[in-house]
Computed example of a mutant assay.
Amino acid sequence: MKKIGFIGYGLRSETMMKAFTGAGLPLAPAAVADPRLETLQPQLARDGRFADTRYYADAEEMLDREALDAVFIGTRCGLHARYAALVMERGLPLFLEKPVCIDEAQYARLLAAPPAQRGRVMVSFPLHVTCIVQEMKRLVDSGALGDVVSVQAVNNVPYGGVYYHSWYRDAALTGGLFLQKSTHDIDYITHILGKRPVSVAALTSKMYFKGNKPAGLHCPDCPEYRTCPESSFVVEHRRKEEPSGELCCFARDTGNEDVGAALFTCEDGTLISYHQTFLVKNDAGRRGARFIGTRASAEFDFYTAQLRVDYYDERHTAVHQFHYPEGLVHFGGDEALARGFAEMLEGAPSPLGLEHGLASAAACLAARRAAQTHREETIEYGF
C-alpha cells in the first residue's frame, strides 16, 4: 500500500481519492495538510479510508515528519507552484493539480526543477487521457486526415456560474480563465497535433456576468434572491442544480470575463483557434475541436461523446460513438489519471509530466498577456 500525503483536501482531492478507490488502487491517505483542520478532520473521520490518517496544519511540517511514497497537491491554484517546488526538492513523486502555476515567476520556479524530477510528476489533465482524445490522436498520427493545417476548438461551459459565485472569481487566486479552462484544451490539442504554438493573439469580454449590485453582496441578502436567474435559490430550487456559491454574480466586484478567444500559431504555420464562453446552460454545453487536414476533417465533442470524420475524396463520413463509464468525472479521464499515477509510483514513466503542465501554462500565460496588451505575444517555454 502506497502512502500518499495530501496538501489541501478540497473537492478535487476528494474526487481523485474516489477515482483511486474506484480503480481499486493500493493507495492510502497517510497524511493530510490543510489549514481547515477543525472542520475537515471530523468530516474525514467518518470515512474508513482515513482511519489511520495523520493531520497537519502546515504542509512543510507534514513533508518533514512523514515517510511518504508520494504527494498530492490539491490547494487553491495560486499555491500549486510553491508546494510543487517543495515536494520536488524532496525528490517525491507528485500528483499536481492544474494550472501548475498562475504567473511567470511561479513558472520560472517550476522550470528550475531538475528534468529527472519533472518526469516524476503527474499533472492533472484528465481530458488528455480520455478515450475520445486518444482516438483522435490515433487518427491524426495515422495520416488519415493528411497534414493537419488548422484546429477549431470551442468550450461553452454550462456550469460557468462557479467562476462568478465563489472564490474562483478572484483572478489573484486563479490566474484567470485562460489558465482555469483553456489549460486543459491547449494540452489535449497539442497532444493530438504533436506540435505546440509559438505565438498567440487573444481577446476577452465581459458581456453577461456584470452589473452594479453592491460589492460583497451575497444572494440571500439580495431582494431579488427568489427571482434572479443566477441566484443560489433559483439554481437549487428551480434549475435543480447544486449552487456553486452565494456571491452575487451581478455585483461590481464579480471579476472574470465571460467570453474569451485566442488564435495560436504553430512554428509550421498551423493555426489553432479557441473560443470559450461561461454563460450557456444545460445542453448548450460544448467542448471539443475540429481538426482540418488535407485529406479529411475530424471533430469530436466531449458532451455528446461523438467523433466524426469527413473524408474528402470519398462520399463517406464515419461517426464513432463513445461510452464513458457511468458516474465518472471528466468523461472517464479521472480514473485513467489515477491508474497512470499508480503505475508511475511503480516505476513507469509519467504520461503527463511537469513539462505538459508548463507547456500549457506558457501558452495560457501568453494568451492572458495578449488579451491585456491587445497585441500578439510570443510563447516562451524555456525547454
Rank of each mutant, 00 (worst) to 15 (best):
M1D: 15
I4D: 10
F6E: 05
S13W: 00
S13Q: 12
A19Q: 07
G22Y: 00
G22Q: 11
P29L: 10
A30C: 04
A31Q: 07
V32R: 01
P35Q: 13
T39P: 01
G48M: 03
A51P: 01
A51E: 10
D52W: 02
T53F: 02
R54D: 07
R54Q: 13
R54H: 11
Y55D: 06
D58R: 09
D58K: 12
D58S: 04
A59F: 04
E61D: 07
E61S: 13
M62E: 08
R65K: 15
R65M: 07
E66L: 07
L68C: 13
A70G: 11
F72V: 10
I73H: 05
G74Y: 01
R76Y: 06
C77M: 11
R82P: 02
Y83W: 09
Y83K: 07
F95P: 06
F95A: 15
L96S: 03
E97Y: 05
K98M: 01
K98T: 04
I102V: 15
I102L: 09
Y107M: 02
A108M: 06
P114D: 09
P115H: 04
Q117C: 04
R118G: 10
L127Y: 09
T130N: 10
I132F: 10
S142Q: 04
G143P: 02
G143S: 04
D147I: 03
Q152S: 14
N155D: 15
V157T: 09
G160Y: 01
Y163G: 00
H165S: 00
Y168Q: 02
A171C: 04
A171T: 09
A171Y: 02
G175C: 06
L177P: 02
L179P: 07
T183V: 15
I186D: 13
I186S: 11
K195F: 00
R196S: 11
G211C: 10
P214T: 06
A215I: 08
L217H: 03
Y225D: 14
R226I: 05
E230R: 08
E230S: 13
E230M: 05
S231G: 06
F233N: 08
V234Q: 12
H237E: 12
H237Y: 08
H237V: 03
K240R: 14
C249D: 05
F250M: 12
A251D: 05
D253C: 11
D258A: 09
D258L: 03
A262W: 01
L263W: 01
C266M: 12
G269R: 04
G269H: 02
I272P: 14
H275Y: 14
H275E: 10
F278R: 08
I292Y: 00
A296F: 03
A296C: 03
Q306F: 01
R308I: 14
Y312K: 08
H316T: 06
H316V: 01
Q321A: 06
H323T: 13
G332Q: 04
G332A: 08
G333Y: 12
G333H: 08
G333L: 11
E335G: 11
R339K: 13
A342Q: 02
M344C: 09
M344S: 11
M344F: 04
L345Y: 02
A348D: 14
S350I: 03
P351T: 12
G353C: 07
L354A: 08
E355Y: 07
E355D: 15
H356K: 14
L358V: 07
S360W: 01
L365T: 04
A366D: 06
R368V: 03
R368M: 09
R369N: 12
A370I: 00
Q372T: 14
I379L: 08
G382S: 11
F383R: 11
